[in-house]
Design a protein around this nucleic acid. Structure first.
Length: 273
DNA sequence: ATGGTTGGGAACCAA
């Protein structure tokens, strides 16, 4: 079957529920992973998703900040809520998608943004971000199968990872080297997390590293398209077992122009599973 | 500089 997974930092699911519905009707992903829902679980707009056929939902939200949700047409069996760095701040949930055969494990991640100053000594938010990456790298390393079994491990990780790892994942590599999201220490830790599971960077399968690719544009630009000072902060990763199943990707840039747009746009990938 | 949330103004967070 064809499996399309979408990830979107929605920056308040209640405020932008009409945009979410419009997107789901337009692209019809099988699974949508949201970050920054900013919505306690008892207020989550379940009915809107139920009405569009997203009957399987895993939601972990809190008041004001963070929050992640997996909305799926595909049934999932096992689910996990992960607490990271000793906090319960709603940044990582996991579901096992039942697409026939072995389940496909799906991680929905909202990694800390890290604040303004890229110094863990003076900025606790940046320290938290680095700790989160270290914890994820260790967690994936512990789950990486032995080489002879690696063929079988089907896992997808998506989300707002708040790091733009490649030179052309930002509008100016040189000018962002000291800006949080593109500093060498973050890019190194991103690489360590990638190596821990042998992750494939799905969009970069289709877009060469020399081409610009963004999923986020600041609200603080008058004309985001004209200035085009973007960054690729939202990612879709897949294990080598899914390498031959990757069919296509799409970054829904035009949604940045919708009324009441999020500063992030959806990233989608389609697999033949 | 802009925007969301909370809470009823200003602070915190986003990146």
């Amino acid at each position: 079957m064809s499996l399309t997974v979408a990830t979107w930092n929605i920056n308040s699911v209640r405020l932008r529920i009409a945009n979410v519905e419009r997107f789901l009707k337009l692209r019809k992903p099988d699974v949508l992973c949201l970050q920054e829902t900013k919505c306690p679980d008892d207020l989550f707009p379940h009915l809107a998703f139920e009405a569009l056929g997203y009957r399987h939902r895993l939601v972990q939200g809190m008041k004001s900040y963070n929050g992640v949700a997996i909305l799926s047409k595909v049934p999932f069996t096992a689910t996990s809520i992960h607490h990271r760095c000793g906090k319960e701040d709603c940044r990582h949930i996991e579901a096992a998608l039942d697409t026939g055969g072995d389940p496909i494990l799906l991680d929905n991640l909202y990694i800390p943004a890290g604040g303004d100053i890229p110094d863990p000594e003076t900025n606790g938010k940046f320290a938290h971000k680095l700790d989160f990456y270290r914890e994820m790298a260790r967690w994936y390393a512990d789950r990486r199968p032995r080489p002879q079994a690696r063929r079988g491990l089907r896992r997808i990780a998506v989300g707002d990872l708040n790091v733009a790892p490649l030179e052309h994942d930002v509008w100016s590599h040189k000018q962002l080297l000291k800006i949080v999201s593109h500093t060498p220490v973050e890019v190194d830790l991103f690489g360590r997390m990638m190596a821990a599971m042998d992750w494939i960077d799905v969009p970069r399968r289709f877009v060469p590293e020399g081409e610009k690719l963004y999923s986020w544009w600041s609200y603080r630009n008058n004309d985001w398209r004209k200035s085009n000072r973007g960054r690729r902060l939202d990612h879709i990763l897949a294990t080598p077992a899914l390498s031959g199943a990757i069919r296509s990707h799409h970054i829904d840039v035009d949604l940045r122009d919708w009324k009441l747009a999020s500063d992030h746009v959806p990233v989608l990938a389609t697999f033949d599973v």
